[in-house]
Each structure stands twice: as C-alpha cells, then as structure tokens.
C-alpha cells in the first residue's frame, strides 16, 4: 500500500504541484506586489515572497488618480456589444452553413474558416487606414466593429458543429406541420444549441476583453482606452514604473475573465477544443 501511495506521489502529485507553481506563480506575484508598500517593493534585503506591511494604497491610486474605472467601463461596453453582434451573425451563418443547401456553401464555409486564421498583426496597418476612412478612429465603434472579425469565424465554426448534431427530423417535422423556417429555427433548433451558443458567447467575450493590438492602434485618448491598453500605456510615465498600481490594474483587469471562465470552464474548454477535436 505504501509503495503505491509513494509511487502516486511521485508520478501524480509531485509533478502536478510543480506545474501548478510554475503556472500560477506570476499571479501570486501580481497579487503580493499590488499590496506591498513602495518601500517594501524596492527593499532587496528582505524576503520578497511575503508581504510584511500590506497596503491598499496602490488600489486607491488606481481608482482615484488614473482612468481605470473608465477603461473598465469601455472594455465592458466593447466586449458586450461586440459579443452580441458576433453571436447574432454566427448563429445565422452557422445555421445556414449547417442546414441549408445552396450554391456556394462550400467556398463560403471555407472562406469563413480561413478568416479565422488571419492574425490581427497582418491587418492592423490597413485597418488603421480603413477605420480612418470610415471616421471611426478613436471611438469605441472602431473596436466594436472590428472585434467581430476575430469572433464571427470562430463562432460560426463552433455553432455549425452544434447545429449539425441536432437531428434534421426535428426541424423537418415542424416544417411539415406548417411552421415557418424562422419558427422552426427559433423554437426548436436554437434551444437545443444553447450550450454551443453559451460556449461561443463566453469565448467571444473573453477574446474581446483580452484584445490588445486593435485597441492600441485605433485609440489615442485616455477616455476611449480599454483596460489592457490603458494599464500598459498610461501607468508608465516616462521611465517611472508604478509597479504597485500596475499590478493592481493587471490583476483587476484579469479578474472578470477569470471569474466568467471559472463559472463556465466546461463551456470554455468545449469552445477551445471544438476546432481541434471535432475538426
């Protein structure tokens, strides 16, 4: 008995603990840095892994003296609206590609999949020009309208899989009974695809919340920035780093996605692995 127990310690719990320490240490570091006093932060003689005089001063500075709350509101607005637009488009497109027979279905499906693989760094330069032509520069709309290009291809791909897994007969019998295709879709197919829609929604929301390069390039004024861009560009003044407030901002900016994700981890993983495992 003891040999199996020690064997399991060696093959399971020891390597797992090591992995957990390596993967979670930066978060612990963010947390303790954000509650250390400035004096303790630059004290090289003490033990750096613990906080001896915890303080909330950096959080006070973050809320009272920076645009953090404004950035948080911006990030929320952009993420919610971009997710809503993307979900609507993805549901319609996913349903169409999974269910309807029409000319061009193959090429359109492939084209949407290809756009999923287009990285933001390939297109941010021309998009800067395009948003300028459309008069969107330095507005929340520049992000609300461009984020769906990252979200729709993924959402369509994911939901197409869900719609395909719903038996056609359910819908066809409703059509025979005289329901319109719209009613068949909203009352039969959509409720059954709810887990998929939830996965796509959570994934879209976290991707929007985390987006950086478009938000960095399209916005210039402080009150239009999102959390990632605001924290990175505004809390560093010249060469002076406000480490405590930087960490407080980084931590608080990470908490919403971490919370949403921890409530819906199954859906998130389903979204993450949909392409890879089903594909």
């Amino acid at each position: 008995m003891t040999t199996t127990a020690s064997r399991r310690l060696l093959t399971v719990y020891l390597p797992l603990s090591l992995a957990a320490i390596l993967l979670l240490f930066p978060f612990y570091w963010m947390l303790i840095t954000s509650i250390k006093t400035n004096r303790e932060l630059i004290d090289l003689s003490g033990l750096p892994f613990w906080v001896f005089e915890p303080t909330l001063e950096h959080y006070r500075v973050l809320f009272a003296e920076t645009g953090f709350l404004r950035w948080a509101l911006n990030t929320l607005i952009v993420s919610v609206v971009a997710t809503a637009i993307s979900l609507a488009c993805s549901i319609l497109a996913g349903y169409t590609l999974a269910r309807l027979r029409f000319r061009g279905a193959g090429p359109i499906g492939a084209a949407i999949f290809v756009t999923y693989l287009v990285p933001q760094t390939l297109l941010f330069v021309p998009l800067l020009e395009v948003t300028r032509q459309l008069g969107l520069t330095n507005t929340l709309w520049s992000m609300i309208l461009t984020y769906p290009t990252i979200l729709i291809p993924f959402g369509t791909w994911l939901l197409m899989g869900y719609f395909r897994s719903i038996p056609r007969e359910l819908e066809e019998s409703a059509l025979i009974d005289g329901a319109s295709r719209f009613r068949a879709m909203t009352q039969i197919v959509l409720p059954l695809a709810l887990p998929g829609i939830l996965s796509a929604g959570i994934f879209s929301f976290t991707l929007s919340w985390n987006e950086f390069i478009y938000a960095l390039v399209f916005t210039t004024s402080t009150d239009i920035k999102t959390i990632p861009v605001g924290v990175v560009t505004e809390l560093v003044k010249g060469d002076v780093y406000f480490w405590g407030s930087l960490m407080a901002g980084a931590l608080l900016g990470s908490v919403p996605v971490a919370l949403i994700y921890s409530f819906f981890v199954e859906h998130y993983v389903a979204g993450l692995t949909a392409g890879a495992v089903k594909g």
């Binding site: 993967l23 963010m30 990632p228 980084a250 900016g253 990470s254 994700y261």
Partner: peptide, 15 residues
C-alpha cells in the same frame, strides 16, 4: 492550469 492562457496577455506580461 488554464489561467495563463485565459487572462489578457498584455496584463500578465506586466507581471
């Protein structure tokens, strides 16, 4: 263990 992947990269990069 999935946390490093899901939090905003720009923010974890600050850590």
């Amino acid at each position: 263990l999935l946390l490093p992947w899901i939090v905003p990269t720009a923010l974890s990069a600050i850590a």
